[in-house]
């Protein structure tokens, strides 16, 4: 039951994009088309599962002082692996994702889950968390991409939708449209999960990567502890 809860947490209740507001940059950039969104979501899911599992496996070996560099090396390794495999076997998709594939390294969801979950739980639970968060990320991207591509470009996965051709809303495929759809979906999820989404206390020193260094209240290190504050400066 606990494992099922870990797996399903990321889908809605703790959705990394729409509740934790992490990984905003790739979400806005890659949600213009359904194909891009699915590809980016699956690539990030693979990296999340693998990095969570490896970091969990090494959590007792990695000293606290160098844990962030170690996590980044592991994450960057898996991202480069995905890049190499995609360039070799899915070159068209590789060209389509372009620079955003490499930017998975600095996706806050991955480092965030490594720091907040994988280094405190066993390998299986961490892999399940990676899977759940990855699917949550993919679903959020997909929901945004469907709205933006169908209404903004009158197409679905590159296939034109005939009856919508005269009713396109072009702003939806432009950056402001991305923010608009993003905001509407956050509001929708907040309404649906009323009372179930993480409370303020989730966003305290415990989840801060600098906590072990400063050991002070969050106000002194500039990290906003208000709800959603953790997302400040995320990529």
């Amino acid at each position: 039951m606990k494992k099922l809860r870990i797996l399903t947490n990321g889908l809605l209740k703790e959705n990394p994009v729409l509740v934790l507001v992490l990984g905003t940059c790739p979400t806005l950039a890659m949600s213009v088309s359904v194909v891009n969104a699915i590809a980016m979501g699956l690539a990030a899911t693979f990296v999340l599962i693998c990095s969570n599992a490896v970091i969990s496996l090494l959590r007792k070996v990695i000293p606290d002082t160098v844990r962030i560099p170690c996590y980044i090396v592991v994450i960057a390794g898996f991202v480069t692996l995905v890049q190499m495999l995609m360039e070799a076997y899915l070159p068209d998709l590789y060209d389509m994702l372009g620079v955003y594939l490499a930017l998975i390294v600095v996706n806050c969801i991955i480092l965030g889950r490594a720091e907040m979950f994988a280094n405190k739980h066993n390998v299986l639970e961490s892999a399940l968390d990676g899977l759940g968060m990855g699917f949550g990320f993919t679903l959020a991207l997909l929901a945004m991409a469907i709205i933006r591509e169908v209404l903004g470009n009158a197409s679905f996965a590159g296939h034109a939708i005939g009856f919508l051709q005269n009713y396109k809303i072009p702003i939806l495929v432009a950056p402001p449209g991305g923010f608009l759809v993003f905001g509407c979906l956050i509001a929708l999820v907040a309404a649906v999960t009323r009372g179930k989404a993480p409370k303020k206390k989730t966003f305290d020193c415990e989840g801060c990567p600098s906590a072990s260094f400063c050991r002070k209240d969050c106000a002194s290190c500039g990290v906003n502890t208000e709800k959603g504050g953790e997302a400040n400066g995320n990529v």
Partner: peptide
């Protein structure tokens, strides 16, 4: 140990 672990990874 920190240096060794990071280098090994």
């Amino acid at each position: 140990k920190s240096i060794i672990v990071l280098t090994a990874i």
